[in-house]
Structures are given as structure tokens and as C-alpha cells.
């Protein structure tokens, strides 16, 4: 295990560009910059929340960091080791230490396998020395961890509701006791009472096992509770990166402010008092020049069109990619 506090993951200038070659509607030679020039570091045991608009590249970033999607540029170091260009074979022992919880629990579970077999599969591949009995015990333990009963092991995915399947997905990711988890919308499909349990469980696992997590979600309230730091992504780039309290207390990027304003308030008496973000999400193949958010930003100026704003440290540990550093953002609450 990597000692807590040391750099576990170092991502530098990471890119994933998709060429959009074929199809009658595509223009030739167009590229979609799903992840563009993204840099960040994570310490062992740290939880980094990743939020952003649908299509902003969160899933692609998570998958590229795990080398489940090949990067188009940049570098990834895991536990001090450069893994950007490692072969599949060389990657295999490292893979055990980095796991993914999928966004879509329906597509990711083999319908012909029992839950028990789905959970045992990673052990059979990576831990062949375990006996059948030991495997069964680990499966039962994992089921209990995610709030299912041992009896569920004999059942098939189609017999489960959406939320139950997502818990199986989390259990599967934990089977090899990883150091690093990319959790892609892991609790979005769960109803709140179980969401709370799972978030608490992930926090507990983090404390007990030193599990570091890249926690992808569109639910700001969840991310607020679970993250040490939060990264905000917009059209393939990080626009803000800050400790959780700073991000919610004093956001520095107008997009973050808009996100906070749009979050639904669980109080029917405060319904509809909302500033809606105007305008459409620009085409990811043809983002606005300069700051990609400027087409929807209420603070945009002519200068915003000129150059892509770089992430700059505006306060110790607080990074923002907005040229209007003087803005006093926040929420009228």
C-alpha cells in the first residue's frame, strides 16, 4: 500500500481527442477534444471530486487515467511509476490496484452470471491462490459491505433493481482491495437512504484501507460531503480545483457559481427561485475560442475570447481558469 499523503496519481497535460471520421453528418478531419490538457495530482487516501456538465469529459478522463481508454497525449504516473505507455501485460499487476465503478450498472454486469460468480471473477484471475472457500468468504464479505445479504450471491443481475445492481458494481470493484478507485456516478442510481450508506461506506473504506478515490458525480451535495478537494470540468478542461470548503464558500470560476445556483433545494417553499444557466452547451467539436464557457457566462468580456485561460493558483491550493480574478462570486443564500 502506498503510504497516505504521498503522491499516488500524477496527471500531466492529459489529452483524449476523438477523431470524428465517418458517418454522413461528420465533417472530415474533425476532432472532439473530450479531455484537453488536464493536469492534477492526488495523494494516497485522498478523495478528489470531479463535477461538470454532461459531456464535459469526466468519464473519459476517469477511463483514460486508468488506461481503459488510450490517451492521445500527456502522461500518467501511478505510485511513482510512469504508466502512460505500459503494455497490457506490464499494466496487469497495476490494474489490480486501480479499479472502476461503472456509471451504468445495467450494461456492466454479465446477465448470465450469478452475482456470486461476478464478484468471484476478479479473484479467480488475479488471486488464483485463494481456495474456493476463501473466495466465497470474500464474496460474502463484499456483499455485506455494500448492504446486500449473502443470499443475493445465488441470484442473477436481472432479478435486481437498478440500485441493487450498482451496489454489486461497487462490491466488484472492491474485491481486489485496490488503492485507487475511479467511481463514476456510483451513487446516482441509488435512492437517498442507501446513497447515504454507500457514501458513508466509501468514506469508511477510505479511512480503513487508505483508499484514494476520483469521485465523479453531478450531485454537488454528495461531492461536498465526500471530497477533500473538488475539480470542476467544462468541455474537456479543468476550470476550477480547490479544497471542498473553499469551492462552496468562495467559488472563483463563474461556471462553478452557476452549478451551485442550479442545485435543487430540498425545500418546496424555496421552489423556483433559481438563476438558470442560459444558452446551450456549445458543440464539443467546435468550442468557443478562448474561454469555452464565455458563451454562457454572465461575466464574459471581449478579452475572454482571446486565449484559453490557464488554471492559476488564485489562493493557496485554490486554482481557477478565469481571467476575471477580481470577481466576487458566491451564492445569495
Amino acid at each position: 500500500m502506498t503510504p497516505p499523503g504521498t503522491a499516488l496519481l500524477e496527471v500531466e497535460g492529459l489529452r483524449k481527442w476523438f477523431p470524428l471520421g465517418s458517418g454522413p453528418f461528420a465533417r472530415l478531419g474533425e476532432t472532439l477534444k473530450a479531455v484537453d490538457d488536464v493536469s492534477f495530482r492526488m495523494r494516497a487516501g485522498e478523495v478528489l471530486g470531479l463535477v461538470g456538465e454532461s459531456g464535459s469529459g469526466k468519464t473519459t478522463l476517469g477511463r483514460t487515467v486508468l488506461r481503459l481508454t488510450e490517451p492521445s497525449g500527456g502522461s500518467i504516473r501511478f505510485a511513482g511509476r510512469e504508466i502512460t505507455h505500459l503494455s497490457r501485460r506490464a499494466l496487469r499487476p497495476i490494474r489490480q490496484k486501480m479499479q472502476l465503478v461503472f456509471q451504468d450498472p445495467f450494461a456492466s454486469l454479465n446477465p448470465r452470471m450469478t452475482i456470486g460468480r461476478i464478484l468471484a471473477a476478479p479473484l479467480i484471475i488475479h488471486r488464483p491462490e485463494l481456495s474456493g472457500r476463501e473466495r466465497e468468504a470474500r464474496v460474502a464479505e463484499a456483499l455485506a459491505l455494500v448492504g446486500l445479504s449473502p443470499g443475493h450471491a445465488a441470484r442473477y443481475p436481472h432479478e435486481f433493481s437498478g440500485g441493487q445492481r450498482q451496489r454489486v458494481g461497487i462490491a466488484r470493484a472492491l474485491m481486489l482491495r485496490p488503492d485507487f478507485l475511479v467511481a463514476d456516478e456510483p451513487v446516482s442510481a441509488l435512492d437517498v437512504s442507501i446513497q447515504a450508506q454507500v457514501v458513508n461506506l466509501l468514506l469508511e473504506l477510505r479511512e480503513r484501507l487508505g483508499l484514494a478515490m476520483l469521485f465523479i458525480t453531478h450531485d454537488l451535495a454528495v461531492v461536498a460531503h465526500i471530497s477533500d478537494r473538488i475539480a470542476v470540468m467544462y468541455l474537456g478542461r479543468l476550470v476550477e480545483l480547490a479544497p471542498a470548503a473553499a469551492l462552496f464558500g468562495t467559488p472563483r470560476h463563474p461556471y462553478t457559481e452557476a452549478l451551485l445556483a442550479a442545485a435543487p433545494v430540498p425545500d418546496p417553499a424555496r421552489r423556483g427561485a433559481r438563476i438558470l444557466l442560459q444558452g446551450d452547451l456549445p458543440s464539443p467539436t467546435d468550442p468557443p475560442s478562448g474561454c469555452a464557457f464565455r458563451s454562457r457566462c454572465r461575466y464574459a468580456q471581449a478579452a475572454c475570447a482571446e486565449a484559453v485561460p490557464m488554471l492559476r493558483e488564485v489562493r493557496p491550493g485554490h486554482f481557477s481558469a478565469c481571467i476575471r480574478e477580481e470577481l466576487a462570486l458566491g451564492l445569495p443564500r
Binding site: 478523495v47 448492504g147 446486500l148 445479504s149 440500485g163 441493487q164 437517498v192 437512504s193 442507501i194 446513497q195 447515504a196 450508506q197 457514501v199 458513508n200 468514506l203 450531485d219 454537488l220 451535495a221 454528495v222 461536498a224 460531503h225 465526500i226 471530497s227 477533500d228 479544497p243 471542498a244 470548503a245 462552496f248 464558500g249 451551485l260 442545485a263 430540498p266 458566491g330 451564492l331 443564500r333
Partner: peptide, 25 residues
């Protein structure tokens, strides 16, 4: 157990647990 956005001036994540309903479905 509804997660709520932190009010301004909160201390951040440390020690925060959600109020969860115990037990399983």
C-alpha cells in the same frame, strides 16, 4: 438523509457522515 449543500463557512468534509437509514432493502 438528503444530502444538502454545505452552508457558507462550513469546515469541509472531515468527520461528516450522512444520516443514513440503517439496514438493508
Amino acid at each position: 438523509s438528503v444530502p444538502r449543500l454545505p452552508e457558507a463557512g462550513c469546515k469541509g468534509r472531515e468527520g461528516v457522515r450522512f444520516a443514513a437509514i440503517p439496514g438493508t432493502v
